[in-house]
């Protein structure tokens, strides 16, 4: 490993940490989309629980990364300033709301929709915390951009919508309104990506490292799914609609996950070292 002065890619967080952002974000997105879709009963319960399971997988992955896993509960100690503590608290709240909402949906009880909405709000807070975790990491210029949290939230919602459409295709369900929402989320993600890319443009190393994942996000994760969703929207064959929408969902999900993994393990160049003045030995130049 080089010790500078030029920046190098951080090695403190690896794929396990990236998995938390990937799975946790996609799971949160799925919970939000499940609430927005207006789904009820068993499908809603399954989607909520699947989203929570993904969040749990992400947290488990990061638990495997921490040096002292038996002290993991210490993570709750500093919600006053640490976004990691806030993320942990949000995860607990999210879990409570999702379990409650899933139970109400599964038993067709009143209050299911309202509790699902609360779960969606908690999911948004959770994924927002994930974005702010990166934003607060001053040592990584590409992460500390003010555009990072918006990008993390936007891509998580798009990934959640992608998952939703994979499931919808598998169960032969889905609406054109849902397709429109999916398309809108893809566009929001594209704008968030463009804004983030502009914000890190001066960081040549990170920009270059993130270019492949960004291109994939733009082309394979946005443009192509939008075309597929557009064709699906005007198609009259249910099988074609669901096949195209499912493929679009898989592309949106996969490219989003790949982008977040790249953000953590490839584009995370540290600050490096820099001195504004060289020492003057003799007369100043």
């Amino acid at each position: 490993m080089s010790y500078g002065p030029t920046p190098w890619v951080q090695r403190h967080w690896d794929l396990r940490a990236a998995a938390n952002f990937a799975a946790g974000g996609a799971g949160s997105g799925l919970i939000v989309v499940a609430a927005l879709s207006g789904a009820r009963d068993a499908p809603a319960a399954v989607a909520l629980l699947a989203g929570l399971a993904l969040v749990a997988v992400g947290l488990f992955a990061v638990w495997l990364e921490i040096g002292r896993p038996l002290r993991a509960l210490n993570v709750f100690f500093n919600p006053r300033t640490s976004w990691m503590s806030r993320e942990a608290i949000a995860a607990v709240v999210l879990g409570v709301f999702v379990l409650r909402a899933a139970w109400l949906h599964a038993t067709d009880s009143p209050g299911a929709v309202a509790t699902g909405a609360a779960a969606a709000l908690a999911a948004l807070v959770f994924v927002g915390c994930q974005g702010m975790i990166l934003r607060a990491a001053k040592g990584i210029p590409a992460w500390r951009s003010s555009a990072t949290p918006w990008l993390i939230v936007a891509t998580s919602l798009a990934e959640g919508a992608g998952l939703w459409w994979i499931a919808a295709a598998a169960h032969a369900q889905g609406t054109r309104t849902g397709l429109a929402l999916f398309g809108a989320l893809l566009c929001v993600r594209l704008f968030a990506w463009l804004a983030w890319r502009r914000s890190i443009a001066r960081n040549a190393r990170a920009s270059a490292a993130m270019a492949p994942a960004g291109t994939a996000l733009s082309v394979l994760g946005t443009a192509l799914p939008l075309v597929l969703a557009g064709v699906a929207a005007i198609s009259t064959s249910p099988a074609v609609v669901l096949g195209l929408a499912g493929t679009a969902g898989a592309l949106a999900f996969g490219t989003g996950i790949a982008f977040k993994i790249a953000l953590v393990v490839r584009g995370a160049f540290n600050q490096g070292f820099a001195i504004p003045h060289m020492p003057v030995r003799g007369k100043r130049a």
Binding site: Q10, H12, I66, N74, S82, K138, G139, N270, Q271, F273
Partner: peptide, 22 residues
């Protein structure tokens, strides 16, 4: 005794001053 070894501090430090030895 409190640190859980999450290394968040290490990525937050702009001076690359922190270490974690597994």
């Amino acid at each position: 005794d409190l640190c859980i070894g999450c290394a968040y501090c290490a990525v937050a430090c702009p001076y690359q001053a922190r270490y974690k030895t597994e």
